[in-house]
Design a protein around this nucleic acid. Structure first.
Lengths: 207, 207
DNA sequence: ATAATCTCTTAAACTGGTTTAATTTTTCCC
DNA sequence: GGGAAAAATTAAACCAGTTTAAGAGATTAT
C-alpha cells in the first residue's frame, strides 16, 4: 500500500504531532472533530533513522504508517537477488505492506528509511476497530485505496508506453525534489533500469 | 478501474440477471437483503457485441460495468499510436474508466468488447446515491479498490522483475483460459512486447 | 584524518526484444 | 463457399538497455 499525498511538504516543526494527519483526512472526507480524535488517539509516533528497515519480507507487518517527515522505499528482491523499488513514500503518504497487515500473511515487501523518518503508526487491532467504529475512516481509506489504484494504473501504463529516458524525464517532472533526497541507484531500481544506464541517460540529457 | 473477480465463470443462462452480482457482493461484505436490492435496483443490463467500443479516450465515462458474460480490454494509444493494454476484464469483474467516471473528466482509456458481452451498468448519479444511502456499498467498493491496488502492485513488480518469457508463463498460469478467448496481439500488448516476439516465445516454449 | 566502503561514471562487448518485410493461416462476411 | 482482411509466423538486421570491469568521487566509521 502506497498512498498519494495531497498536501505540500511542511517544516520539521510538525514532527510528532498529528496536525498533518488531521489536515490530510479533512482534505478527503468531511468528519466531525470528535471522530477525528478517535483516529488520532490510536496513532503512535515513531522514529526510524536513515537506513533502518521498518519491514523485511517474510516478517509480519504489524503496522501501517503515515509519514510526518522523511522518506522510505518499498522494494522486493527478485529471484536473482536484484532489488526492485515499488515506490517511494514521503511526507503525507501512508505506506506499509497492506496485504500482510490485513491478511496476517508474511510480507512480500521490504521497507527501508532513506532519511531520518518520523511517522504515525496504527496497529492491526486499532485499524480494525477504527473501521468498525468510525464510518469516516472507512470512507477515508476507501479514497486512499482508490487514489493509489489510479496512480498504479498510471505507473503500469508508463512502463508499457515509454522508453527509459522518457520514464526518467517524467519521474523528474513528477517528483522534482526527490533526486536531491535519495540516491540514483534507487531511482534506477524504481525506473526498472540499471544504475549504469541511468548514469548514461543523465549524461545524455545534460549535454 | 479493473477489479478482480472472486468467483468461477458460470454459464450463459445467468445473462441479464443480477444473481452473479449479488453473490459477488455477499462474498466481500455482510449485507442485509434489503440493502442488496437497493444496489441491484440501480443496475441496468446492457449488451455489447464483439468488437464494439464501450468507451473512447476523450469521451466522458458515464457508467461503470460489472461483467455477467464476456470479455473486454482496457487500453490506451501511446504518442506513437501504439496500443497498450492495461487490463482484460471477464466474468465477475467490474471495469470502466473510474477516474473519468468519478471526476467527470475526459477518459484516458479505450474499452472494447473482445467477445459478445453482457454487463450490468451503474450511472454516475446512481453510484453517488448508493454511496450516500448504502453503507455496505462504501465497504464493498472499498474492498474492490483495495484488491485492485494489490493486483496492480503485483503487475508493477512483475514488469520490473521478469523477462518477457517469464511474464508470459505467469500470464498463462494466472489466466489459463484467456488465450483461447482473445487474440495473441492483445496478449502481447498486455505483456509489453510485440506480437512478433510473443510468437517467437511461443515457438520456443512449445518446442 | 585516514582507511574502508559505498556510489557514480565510463566504456566495450553483449543480449533481449524491436523493426521491417515477406509468407502463411485464420477469421470475417457477402 | 470464396474472396478480402486480419492475425500469426518466420527470419534478418537492428537498437535499447545489460553486463562486466575498472577507476573516480563521496560517505562513513574509527
Amino acid at each position: 500500500m502506497i498512498w498519494r499525498r495531497t498536501d505540500p511538504v511542511r517544516s520539521i516543526s510538525d514532527i510528532s504531532n498529528v496536525e498533518a494527519l488531521i489536515r490530510h483526512i479533512k482534505n478527503l472526507v468531511p468528519i466531525p472533530d470528535g471522530h477525528l480524535s478517535l483516529i488520532t488517539g490510536r496513532c503512535r509516533a515513531q522514529y526510524f533513522p536513515k537506513k533502518a528497515h521498518l519491514l523485511h519480507q517474510e516478517e509480519f507487518a504489524k503496522q501501517v504508517h503515515f509519514i510526518l517527515q522523511g522518506c522510505v522505499r518499498t522494494y522486493v528482491f527478485d529471484y536473482n537477488g536484484v532489488e526492485h523499488t515499488l515506490s517511494f513514500s514521503m511526507e503525507d503518504y501512508w505506506f506499509g505492506d497492506l496485504q500482510s497487515f490485513i491478511r496476517n500473511t508474511p510480507a512480500s515487501f521490504n521497507i527501508q528509511a532513506l532519511e531520518d523518518t518520523h511517522v504515525l503508526s496504527i496497529s492491526q487491532r486499532d485499524w480494525e476497530e477504527l473501521l468498525a467504529e468510525v464510518p469516516e475512516f472507512v470512507s477515508y481509506t476507501r479514497i486512499l485505496f482508490r487514489n493509489t489504484m489510479f496512480s498504479h494504473e498510471n505507473r503500469i501504463l508508463q512502463g508499457l508506453s515509454y522508453t527509459a529516458e522518457e520514464r526518467y524525464r517524467r519521474f523528474l517532472a513528477a517528483y522534482p525534489t526527490l533526486p536531491q533526497r535519495i540516491s540514483q541507484k534507487h531511482i534506477a531500481s524504481y525506473l526498472g533500469i540499471t544504475p549504469e544506464f541511468l548514469s548514461m541517460l543523465r549524461k545524455k540529457i545534460k549535454g
